[in-house]
Each structure stands twice: as C-alpha cells, then as structure tokens.
Design a protein around this nucleic acid. Structure first.
Lengths: 204, 204
DNA sequence: GATCAAAACGGACCGCAGTCCGTTTTCTAT
DNA sequence: ATAGAAAACGGACTGCGGTCCGTTTTGATC
C-alpha cells in the first residue's frame, strides 16, 4: 500500500537532497563572491570550499572540477544575455527584422565575450561555451540566417559567423594588435558577404 | 687589448652556453619521444626531466612551463608544413594561382590542425599557435587575398577565414555533431562568399 | 518515532606544475 | 694554465587540483 510520498514526476532526475541543494547554493555564492573580489584566476578550490563552510569533497562532487565551477559561475551571468536575445526589446530581441537582429546579436555577443573573458578562459572547454551558451548562440544564428533566406550550408555558415567572436580567436587577433572597435565593423562586413549571395544587390 | 673572443655578432642574443644548448636538445628529444609513446596529455614534467637526465629546474628554465614545452614540440612539427607552403610544390606552394593555393592551404591547415590536435590543446595559448604558427598562417592568407584583389579589411577577412579552422572552434562544432568531411566543403563555400564581392560572377 | 539504506559529507591524502637557492660548469681575461 | 664572475644546474620544497573512504545526514518506510 505505500507509494512514494511525493509525485513521481515522470523521468525527472531523482531530485536533489536538501543538504545537497543548500550546499550547492552556498558554494556558488562563495565562488561568485571570490571571483569578484580577487579575480577568477586567483580563486582556489580550497578557498571556495572553506568560504562556503563546506568540505572540499563536496565542492568537487557538485561541480566536477575547477573548470566546471567557473562554468557554473559564468553560466549564471550569461543567462541574462540569453534572455535579452529571446525576449528582450528589439533590435536584439524579437520585433526587429532579421538583419538588424543579427547585427545587434553580434555586437552584444562581442561585448559579453570580452566582459566575461577571464571567466571564459578559466572555464576552459569543459565550460558553458562548449555546451550551453555556445549552442544557444549557434541555434539563434541559424534561425536568423534562415529568416534571411540564406542559401547553402546554414549550420556551417553560422559557425563561420560565430567563430571570430569567440575568445580564443579574439585573443590571437589582439596579439596581432587590432583595436577592438574596428573588429565589429569588420564582422559586419563579413556577415554582409555571407548573407548576400553573389550576384544579389548589396546591403546597407 | 683583449676583445670578446668571438665575433660580437651585432645585437644577437648573448649566445647560449654549450651545456645549455646540449640540455635543450636532450630535453626536446625526450619530450618528443614521450609524447609519441604515451600521448601528450600523459607526459609529466618530471618524466621529461629524468628521461633527459637533467634536473627539473633546468627544464623549466629552458621552456618556461609545461605549455611552453608542448609548444616547442609542436612548433618543430609544424615547421615542416610551413616550409611546404612557402616553397613546396603547387598548388600549396608557389606556382599555382592564388585561388587554388588558398584552397590547398585550407585543406592542409585543417589536416594539420586535426593531426596535432592533442599537442595544440596541451600547448594552450602560451603556444605556437598564438605566436609562431598562427601569425604565419594569417600573413599568408592576407597575401593570397590581396593577390585575389579582395577589397575591404583584408586583415580581418583573413581572421574570419582562419577562425573556423582553429582547434577550439572545431571542437565546439564536432560536439554539435558535424562530420569532419563536410567541413572542408563548407569552408570552401565560405571563402567563395568572402572572396567574391557581391555582384561579381560566381567562382568554380 | 524508530529503523535503515542511499546519498552526501569532509578532510587527509596524492601527484604534478612550478619555485628557490646552494652548488657546479662554462667562458673570459690575464 | 689560472682565477673569477656569470650563467646554468638540480633536486628539495610549496601550493593547488583532484581523489578516497570512513562518518554523518536525509528521507522514505513501518
């Protein structure tokens, strides 16, 4: 006669225990705090654990690795941008035409990448960019490209459009000594060439 | 009366002492050997030092860091490719027209990047890609673009052409599940769009 | 409210990158 | 050949990321 006391909630991950949830929060808060105070590069796992008043083992069980922790911190920050893209005001959000949205996307993407540069670097490839944030961006660009009626291998063109805005590329470039401002203009030119099929009229 | 015994050789780095040079070579050989045997990710600095019969301090003085060492190993491998580009047979080397050279460049660049993927990853950004190899590639592409009479911000277009061939991008992409083969075709399409100005005739 | 298995905890412990500093080698000058 | 300073050497040492495992907490069951 006894059934599991709470709704089985089909297929959902077994539900996190209360202490686990509490500690996850403490750890994330402590991490964000420390990142802000001393910079991501100087944050040690021991420091985070003890600032959160939690054992080191727990920290690693929750976040897998240092990179994983940084990715979690980063993810939190980037979620806000994703929201702006999906449901914020135009031209970034819905409502403007696809071309203008694409340009706004590029500009803000560049800005957030630079803003979170250190965190992105520390998150390494385990991180947000690889899974969450990057595939969101890719999906969005693919969508805009299809709206623009771009022909060809749209997924790959999306990659090409995003690539120059990724941190590793930006880092290599600025070593070659580019002013960042010029970068956006160059990117717009690039996108124009990709979007406008050969033989069509030029774009403004 | 006594002058420095050997030609002062204007401005040249003070010349490496003989033991230093010998040890550098031993270390590099040991490193290459170990990388080959167990894979770059499993090579420890202690292992390299003791395989070379040299102290750890020496290893770090010569190569700065683990990443620096990996970069040195990588550099050695990539030099051969650079030579093919600059003076090998066409279409990669000089002799073919710029468009064909550009395509050959892209294909071989993609190949070598994938071939050396592990080393590139281990070399991190301290490495060859950042300084040596990357700027070589960028310079070459700029040159080919100008040969093709491309208008616009050539240095930036070169960045855009190279970016999708860089490892971090390739890694993100194949997570999205692209077959690698398709990639080259997509890249050719991209380059075509960049090189062919809007309104001009399409390319073969 | 008592019982019990599963899950989470925490800190001692390990391996490796990178530093430090007393010792040895090399090279120049005489 | 010899002396002396500069440069290179090497291995003990430190700090940090990550693991392991005996102990504690949770929450479902009766």
């Amino acid at each position: 006669m006894s059934e599991p006391h709470l709704l089985p909630l089909l297929g959902a991950p077994p539900q996190e225990r209360r202490d686990a949830a509490r500690n996850r929060e403490r750890l994330l808060d402590a991490a964000k705090e420390l990142v802000e105070q001393v910079g991501a590069h100087a944050v040690t796992m021991d420091a985070v654990a003890s600032a959160a008043g939690v054992g080191k083992g727990t920290l690693f069980r929750r976040f897998e690795s240092r990179e994983g922790l940084m990715a979690a911190v980063l993810d939190h920050s980037e979620t806000e941008w994703q929201a702006r893209v999906m449901s914020g005001p135009p031209p970034l959000g819905p409502g403007a035409d696809a071309w203008d949205r694409l340009l706004a996307f590029g500009r803000t993407r560049l800005e957030t990448t630079l803003l979170h540069a250190e965190l992105i670097r520390e998150a390494g490839r385990s991180g947000a960019r690889a899974s969450g944030a990057y595939s969101f961006a890719a999906t969005h660009v693919r969508y805009l490209l299809s709206q623009l009626g771009v022909s060809g291998d749209v997924p790959l063109l999306a990659v090409a459009i995003l690539a120059p805005l990724e941190l590793p590329i930006l880092e290599q470039v600025s070593l070659d000594g580019f002013p960042v401002d010029r970068f956006y203009d160059g990117w717009v030119d690039l996108v124009g060439r990709i979007v406008t099929p050969p033989g069509a009229a030029a774009r403004t």
